[in-house]
Design a protein around this nucleic acid. Structure first.
Lengths: 334, 334
DNA sequence: CACGTGATCTGCAACGATGTATCCCAGCAG
DNA sequence: CTGCTGGGATACATCGTTGCAGATCACGTG
């Protein structure tokens, strides 16, 4: 059916291997021969069969990307950046949605999925470092999203603590003293939630403001999670003058609910988030948030993973580069 | 390196082909043999090499999905649904971002990308039907997103005209008479923009309201496009009491700009969109919009494509199922 | 003029699985 | 006892490409 190298070889009057050499830019080919082969390729409409190439070469030139769900804006935007970075380096990205389920994450790490990819970018949500190390095979693996932190694993880090502290400090500088936190529980110390909560605490301490666990409300990192959380807080009667959603959709969900309930933002209550998704800029009022360095994260992660795949760089040293964040001050918390 | 069927065969004391038979659930295998093979697989940690299987069988069990950019919420949500639908049927999805460039779309249609997939889901934006037919190979192809319409191509349709008319009718029913349209030009008749514009016109006509081209503002289908467009309209001094953004992000961008400029929504100006992205529900005010049947679109498209791939269904008849839409009335246009 | 050298091209095996044809054997009818 | 049947397992070729090891040939050198 499909045109193969053999057909091209016959048409060009050369050996199959010469066609292969032309395609792979082998150095020593007479220009005339090369041209004949290229003409034959053109004429027959030959396309290299990537499956066969993969089988023979042992490389698929595909990176796996495991994340919870593309419908989450931050992941979608990150995935888009990752795909572009990979594309620029000659790799494609195969996305696997884990739905935030441990089984699914595990099977993505070990399963057949791996045989389709040369390496994996993984945003773990349910598995811890130990489970990841146990489940992961020998193929290169780079973690993103820092829910997991471990000195044995390559990963690109977000400055959760510092960025969170910066947001909090900004709210404090605006005169807020009772800052509610949505998306973490009082005891959390690990994962994005824990790290961001700790950054919040550190900023409070630095400003001499007392930490009140009653202001810390756990919720799913979704819009409705944020809306529910703020509703519970309002209903509880606890006083607060600012809200820090540990990611943007939580903050936006809370913002929505606050406005529904007739609160004035930012006059009565300031709102801030974390991620700087595109939507944050166009919310009403626009959302103050922190940009975690998404483009840099994508770039570094892809670069690191491909270096591992291609054996460049120091093979044995675990790498954990950190992305630069920046505060985005907007209307919701000027 | 990796464990192959051969290793398993040796360990289980059977032939390579028997291992293959066990894995592919061949009927006539003695339970004892099967068990021995399964044990060996377990013990050695064997994983089938999907690349090799693909080469031999000629199927990759992957669907290609070509869209402009995952950072666009509607595409991200659609992609998520498509991936789930495909997964449920034993297929994976390989996403290719065209960036809305014709060259890129074309290369996705013909290029090596195709050899990795059994069929393609394509959301065309730059290519027209003729170009698509010319560029596409013989592999199954299903179009989505109806910028292109052609009786020769399989596609899943959105009821652009009807849904758009429904939104417009809703605004009219709310007493609005000067409804601005963002995201189309006066002359447009094809593509989502043209079809939706026509739906708008039809609803006006049905209500006996005159069509005013000055209310139709072209813009990119992005947040900033919507914001710019409404800014231009406001600056032009043309009077209007409602805005229909031809998709949600345009509407949300416009909504943002209206609020920035101190307009009251919906009291002074009502706003409606098209797509019902998750964000619409949590905007402030929440956005009235139309749900085009996204889940159904994903489901039908995947089903249709896989039927084509597997040769089920009527081979020769072009299929163009239409998804059911539904109006979502919210605060921005009650 | 024989010979080394490097440019140019070729043949064969192999990647890891599956399709096809075949073989072996137990059970059973004639 | 022979021949047939069909379950259960196997051997071999094959998918389309690339790695490796050569083969060939022109050319300059001593």
């Amino acid at each position: 059916m499909a045109v193969t190298m053999n057909d091209v070889a016959r048409a060009a009057g050369v050996s199959l291997k010469t066609v292969s050499n032309v395609i792979n830019d082998y150095e020593f080919i007479r220009p005339a021969t090369k041209q004949r082969v290229l003409d034959a390729i053109e004429e027959l409409g030959y396309e290299t069969n990537l499956t066969a190439r993969s089988l023979r070469s042992g490389k698929t030139s595909m990176l796996g990307l495991v994340l919870a769900d593309l419908s989450v804006p931050y992941y979608a935007e990150l995935a888009s950046d990752i795909m572009k970075a990979a594309w620029a380096r000659g790799y494609r990205v195969l996305v696997e949605q884990s739905g935030n389920e441990a089984d699914h994450e595990k099977s993505a790490l070990q399963g057949q999925f791996r045989s389709l990819t040369d390496g994996l970018l993984f945003i773990p949500l349910s598995l811890d470092a130990e489970q990841i190390i146990r489940a992961a095979g020998k193929k290169p693996l780079v973690l993103l999203g820092e829910f997991v932190q471990d000195p044995r694993l390559d990963m690109v880090l977000i400055q959760n603590h510092e960025a969170s502290a910066a947001v909090t400090a900004h709210l404090l500088a605006g005169g807020r003293r009772r800052i509610a936190v949505l998306g973490a529980h009082d005891g959390d110390t690990t994962g994005s939630n824990g790290l961001r909560l700790n950054g919040y605490k550190a900023a409070l301490a630095a400003a001499g403001v007392e930490y009140d666990p009653a202001l810390v409300i756990g919720c799913e990192w979704r819009r409705d999670g944020g809306a529910d959380a703020i509703a519970r807080l309002l209903d509880s009667g606890v006083a607060f003058d600012a809200v820090f959603g540990l990611n943007d959709v939580v903050a936006l969900g809370a913002l929505h609910e606050l406005l529904v309930r007739g609160k004035r933002v930012p006059d009565e209550i300031a709102v801030a988030g974390f991620d700087d998704i595109d939507e944050a800029r166009f919310a009403s009022p626009s959302l103050t948030t922190v940009e975690p360095g998404r483009a840099e994260i994508a770039e570094r992660a892809v670069e690191l993973l491909i270096n591992r795949i291609e054996g460049k760089g120091s093979a044995d040293k675990v790498e954990q580069p950190e992305a630069e964040f920046s505060l985005r001050v907007r209307q919701s918390a000027p």
